[in-house]
Design a protein around this nucleic acid. Structure first.
Length: 304
DNA sequence: GCAATTGGAGGGAAACGCTT
DNA sequence: AAGCGTTTCCCTCCAATTGC
């Protein structure tokens, strides 16, 4: 049975939020501010409304029920979204508790998130980031289509109707191999490349063919892809402990933490790079919080 | 010390009745 | 049936009190 929204007023939600955050009727009352009895009464109304005691007495303390714990995050989120919606002309990063939601490939997470998180900590220390995985079905997912996701980040060929896109940076491919790879003493020739066994990253999963194979086909050559994994991040480790080669975005391949375990080679054939871009729902286009976040992500993509 | 309950006050919304 | 003023009712509040 659907809950009757007419029975809820926003004040009740504000009190619910305070109760869930504080875990105490008196503390919640001080926070709102409201008298303690009024807060207690509101708690009673919430209890009948939600059919759950929410906070139960345990000696001197009040303990949250599982449902209360489950409600804490979403209620806080809804209220901050309402505040953002009703006060569209203002976004105060310094105090905002907004949660920014993104979908990103792990390639993007590795190359962009460190900088994004640093800037977030500096400019909006109370704001938070939720990163969700990204695959072939992400753009069709309900949260993205409704504009509940803030940004989709990755290699995005054709933005759907009703979305905006901005290119963040260009990425190119390089080849990686373990240190002192026996077949690569003379460097990486095309012959060495096609006779090696390869690993391939395919965010959709299950693909054994990618841009490298298309480029090879034009030269009437072919390589053997022995394994396909959905995440870029695991590839350097797999390559470091085998004779496999892998072709990766340079942003991942040249990361410092792999420098001692893998060598990076320019590809012995021309493989077109790709543009990493961000995508957002038209509904978010003018939102101050969203504008602010887009600027932060864009600046993170090309740090000065 | 803190939560819950009680009783009374104030304010706002809904309902009512009158007029046009 | 629309507009307006009045009345009624209900909700929420607080202070005081009780209960754990």
């Amino acid at each position: 049975m659907a809950i009757n929204l007419r029975a809820i007023d926003l004040n009740l939600l504000v009190i619910l939020d305070a109760l869930l955050q504080e875990g105490s009727v008196s503390a919640a009352a001080r926070r709102i501010p409201l008298s303690q009895p009024a807060t207690s009464l509101a708690l009673q109304r919430l209890r009948t409304l939600l059919g759950d005691p929410l906070l139960v007495r345990s000696g001197a303390r009040m303990l949250p029920t599982p449902q209360a714990q489950a409600l804490r995050e979403p209620v806080a989120r809804i209220l901050s979204e309402i505040a953002d919606t009703l006060q569209p002309e203002s976004f105060a990063p310094a105090t905002s508790e907004r949660i920014f939601r993104i979908h990103a490939t792990d390639h993007i997470e590795l190359s962009l998130l460190p900088e994004v998180l640093q800037r977030l900590a500096r400019e909006a220390p109370r704001a938070r980031l939720a990163s969700y995985s990204m695959d072939g079905s992400t753009l069709r997912s309900e949260t993205v289509r409704k504009g509940e996701t803030d940004l989709v980040l990755g290699y995005l060929r054709d933005p759907p109707e009703g979305f905006h896109r901005k290119t963040l940076f260009q990425e190119r491919f390089v080849c990686i191999a373990r240190k002192r790879h026996p077949a690569l003493r003379q460097g990486l020739s095309l012959e060495a490349f096609v006779s090696a066994r390869h690993l391939l990253a395919s965010p959709q999963g299950g693909n054994f063919s990618g841009p490298v194979d298309e480029a090879l086909a034009k030269l009437r050559r072919h390589r053997f892809v022995v394994a396909s994994v959905p995440r870029f991040a695991v590839i350097p480790g797999l390559v470091a402990s085998s004779d496999l080669l892998a072709t990766l975005p340079a942003g991942i391949a040249t990361r410092r933490e792999w420098r001692n375990q893998i060598d990076v080679f320019e590809l012995p054939l021309a493989v077109p790079g790709f543009a990493v871009s961000m995508l957002w729902h038209a509904r978010q286009h003018q939102s101050p919080a969203h504008l602010w976040f887009r600027r932060l992500v864009a600046e993170s993509a090309r740090p000065e």
